Simulated assay, not measured.
Amino acid sequence: MKHIRKMIVAVLVSIAVIIFIYNFTSNSERKFVKVNDASDTPLTTFTVINNENFAGTTNTHRFDIRAGFSYVKVSFKNTGSKHFTFTINEGSTSGTAIKSGSVPADGKEHTYYSDKALSTGSYYVSTSSAQGMSGILDLSLGTDVN
């Protein structure tokens, strides 16, 4: 009987040591999320257009604001020799203007933000210049104004 008790105690101690070593060496906070699996951490930004080159006298890019996002951040890098203008319109290229501006030809990145929450749907960012233009466009959606 004493022999069985010793074996049971030895097994229990061994299990406790294994559990202790496992907990000490593993990171119990680590989470693995597969692509396309839902995450419990909400996204705050979502890149829609990334380093898109444009040239000529007019360009239009369509993008969609999806559920959970309400703000637009658009960045331009004018690599041409003349300034150009841009407009963001809702629904169509001639729809309600959300944001517009002029981008100088200084080779620097210029960033513009929508100042009001936007609804889901289709939007268009158009660039134009009478002299021709070249540049790079980035556009991201956000959950807040910044």
Rank of each mutant, 00 (worst) to 15 (best):
S81K: 11
L12R: 08
S70H: 14
D144V: 04
V17Q: 00
T44L: 08
A117F: 04
P42N: 07
M133Y: 01
K116V: 08
R62A: 15
Y112L: 11
D40C: 02
N50E: 14
G107R: 08
M133T: 00
T57N: 10
S81L: 10
T57A: 03
S102T: 15
R30F: 14
T25R: 06
F63K: 13
I8C: 07
H61Q: 15
F24L: 14
T47A: 14
T47F: 09
Y124E: 01
F24T: 15
N23W: 07
T45N: 01
K82I: 05
G80V: 09
A16H: 03
T120W: 00
A16N: 09
T44R: 10
G95L: 10
Y113E: 03
N59E: 10
Y124V: 01
H3T: 12
S81V: 10
K2H: 07
S81Q: 13
F84P: 00
A38G: 05
S129F: 00
S114N: 08
Q131F: 10
F24N: 12
D37I: 01
G68I: 08
T60D: 04
A97Y: 01
G95I: 11
V35I: 12
A55W: 05
T143P: 04
S102V: 07
K6I: 10
T120L: 02
S100P: 01
F63A: 13
S39R: 11
D64V: 07
V17E: 04
T41H: 05
A130E: 14
I19Y: 11
S100T: 15
M133V: 00
H3A: 09
Y22A: 13
R62T: 14
S126F: 01
F69K: 03
T143W: 02
G68R: 07
T120P: 01
G132M: 00
V103H: 09
T57F: 02
V35Y: 11
A10P: 04
S26Q: 14
E52T: 07
L139I: 10
K73Y: 05
S28T: 12
N27K: 09
P104S: 11
V9M: 11
Y124M: 00
I15E: 08
S75H: 09
V125R: 05
F63Q: 13
H61F: 15
G107L: 03
N53L: 05
G107C: 04
T60V: 15
N51L: 06
A105L: 06
S70A: 15
N89H: 04
V103L: 06
D37W: 08
S134T: 15
N59L: 04
F32D: 12
L139D: 07
S75N: 05
I8M: 12
G142F: 09
V9C: 09
N50R: 12
R66E: 11
V74S: 08
L118N: 06
A38Q: 09
V33C: 03
I136N: 13
K73N: 13
N89C: 15
H61Y: 14
K99Q: 09
V11W: 04
H3M: 02
Y124L: 06
R66G: 10
N51C: 03
H110A: 03
V103A: 10
G68D: 05
F84E: 01
E109G: 00
D37H: 11
E90M: 09
S14C: 15
M7G: 05
S28F: 02
I15D: 07
R30D: 11
Y22F: 15
V13F: 03
L139C: 06
Q131P: 00
